[in-house]
Design a protein around this nucleic acid. Structure first.
Lengths: 251, 251
DNA sequence: TCGATTTTGTGCGATATATGAACAAATGTC
DNA sequence: GACATTTGTTCATATATCGCACAAAATCGA
């Protein structure tokens, strides 16, 4: 790609949108400039543009995003057949298991939820399509990493900040690679409170007819309700069933 | 705002993202140019920029959005306290009612889902946060329109393409304004298969402590299961309860 | 297979944007 | 209340983008 095939004003604007987040629901020009590491004048122009287009509100001091910004993500969710395709299966799965069921794909070092059927809140975090979790300590992340060539998985782990969310979190890259091998072999991943205390989950890969892994499916359960060691026995059959039903339908 | 405070390259790029959608999951440069009504060279630069940043994939012919694009909408969902706040209440509500429960806000002529607890699929359309429905024929839309000054609601209806999705859809602006008055007075809106045959719903406004309407809550049910005339009797009490519980918590 | 049609890539002049410094206004501090 | 600091805004100019026109490539139909 040539230098002139890149619209830097567009790239800067997207960076400004991403500056908003859980910790910064509203931003001043200076704050957004600091987060994005862009010039204040540039950030101001991007924010005023967002505001002019209705993607942001401006009260003279703070900018906040408006729901119109959801159109951008919705362009993906509705354009990609996968979320709509798996949703009814997740609903079934969730009802049958009496637990939350989700589907996700990998984006960099993170797992991105593309569909979810929630039974009731068991996590402190609120997950919805678009939500992200670090791949190394999520069951779907393990499954998706295991599907990659080992060198690539290694590279992703190298780029990840491997922090111990709980005392049980595996943070040693070698141990994780070893775990990925196990996951690849057995065809599923179990997480026992590595992301959050009290939460276990089990995930399987979702493959297309050609055997390529296109996403992951999981069931999450409170540790108080189901021991991690029972997860496979209890939920693996229905996950496998869903996996098999979806296989000829995706891609 | 001055002319020079607007970054048109950014605005054009956002338009290109929105060109993707259900009917157009993958676009060539020429297609995107036609949809956005932008110059091909401009669209090409925007798409290559998206691809360079990892927001899109390019196979030399077609561009498709990647899940990374969800970061943009997620910036809103995680930055706005409302979705996370109402989600547990929707889960409860949904479980208690045995039907889907959702929360939405108004964006232009459309209702945008910001949170949802689905019980099982009853509609042909798959709703998720970010999904949009025309306000005039959705229960939450009626409630949100009713909360506006009448002139503003009128203006929105004027801008809306009032099409009859089903034989029951109300499409006459005067009739709709009259209906909005009724909704305002009774404090809830009932839709009887105006959006899709076989689907009814009931919605109430979600107000903050100051009495300002910040969103709408609804319960949707298959017409075969619950007659529209029974909706209020059956679900209004629990909707009101949720409304009351959330009132001191929002904004 | 060939020509017609559509789509894509590129060079260039006109136009729009980014930059960084300077200033003004607001905010925080003592 | 005065000083220091941060923040928002403006401006001139260097730089980058836009959109047109044309060329090249791909696609389509007969």
């Amino acid at each position: 790609m040539r230098e002139t095939d890149f619209v830097s004003g567009f790239a800067r604007g997207l960076k400004v949108i991403e500056a908003f987040g859980e910790a910064q629901p509203r931003l001043t020009i200076a704050e957004a400039a600091k987060i994005t590491d862009l010039d204040r004048a540039t950030v101001r122009r991007s924010l005023l543009t967002l505001s002019e287009l209705g993607y942001a509100d401006y009260d003279g001091k703070f900018f906040t995003l408006t729901p119109k910004i959801l159109r951008l993500g919705h362009a993906y969710l509705s354009a990609t057949p996968l979320p709509a395709l798996v949703q009814p299966y997740l609903d079934q799965l969730s009802e049958k298991a009496g637990q939350s069921a989700s589907a996700s794909v990998l984006d960099g070092t993170e797992v991105v939820y593309v569909a979810r059927a929630s039974q009731r809140r068991v996590m402190s975090i609120n997950l919805m399509p678009g939500s992200r979790l670090p791949a190394y300590c999520a069951s779907m992340g393990r499954v998706l990493l295991a599907a990659l060539p080992e060198a690539e998985a290694h590279e992703i782990l190298r780029r990840t900040e491997l922090k111990a969310n709980t005392p049980r979190t595996k943070t040693d890259p070698e141990e994780l690679i070893e775990e990925l091998r196990r996951v690849r072999e057995q065809g599923y991943a179990v997480i026992d409170q590595e992301l959050e205390l009290g939460l276990c989950s089990i995930a399987v890969p979702l493959m297309n007819a050609r055997g390529q892994v296109v996403a992951a499916l999981n069931i999450g359960a409170p540790a108080a309700h189901v021991a991690a060691s029972e997860l496979a026995e209890r939920y693996l059959p229905m996950l496998k069933e869903t996996q098999g039903a979806l296989r000829p339908l995706v891609q």
